[in-house]
């Protein structure tokens, strides 16, 4: 396939948590080939794992037969991972950043993944296309 990007790879998985390790391996290789160091690769892997876990949980409600597409693109020092699903629309950007003290006190477990994604990546963008798909784009710049 012709692409204007230096790296442009795709993987498609079923919405099972059993496939998270496949996603991590896919992202690890793409980030490594883009030139990131091990520490940053670790951050990208975790952010993508959290994003896919959110899709499995919120868009597909742990049903195993949904589709999740993951595309990794690298060009001009910008590494993007785009995760698309056709599950139930969920508006991730409405989830507020948690106050961590309150979080521990209330034993609130959900939302931590979103918090980590924001901490680990440089940019996160969400879009929902006419309520037919959810798309989250995670960006990390190679410094």
């Amino acid at each position: 396939m012709k692409t204007k990007y230096k790296i442009d790879r795709k993987i498609e998985i079923k919405s099972s948590t059993a496939n998270l390790s496949l996603v991590r391996d896919f992202v690890k290789k793409a980030a490594k080939d883009s030139g990131f160091n091990d520490e940053t690769i670790g951050k990208i892997i975790l952010a993508v794992d959290e994003a896919c876990t959110n899709v499995i949980k919120h868009a597909y409600h742990y049903s195993n037969d949904g589709d999740i597409k993951i595309r990794a693109v690298f060009d001009k020092s910008k590494f993007k991972v785009i995760i698309t699903d056709h599950g139930e629309p969920f508006n991730a950007k409405e989830i507020p950043e948690p106050n961590l003290q309150e979080y521990h006190r209330l034993k609130k477990v959900g939302g931590l993944g979103m918090f980590l994604m924001r901490k680990l990546m440089d940019e996160i963008n969400y879009s929902t296309g006419n309520k037919t798909f959810n798309k989250v784009t995670l960006v990390k710049y190679l410094k």
């Binding site: 991590r24 975790l46 794992d49 959290e50 034993k107 477990v109 931590l112 993944g113 980590l116």
Partner: peptide, 16 residues
């Protein structure tokens, strides 16, 4: 080798 928030949540759920 690896932990995600799902793992961290287990400790939060049981520590109390």
């Amino acid at each position: 080798n690896y932990i995600s928030s799902a793992g961290l949540g287990v400790f939060m759920a049981y520590v109390e």
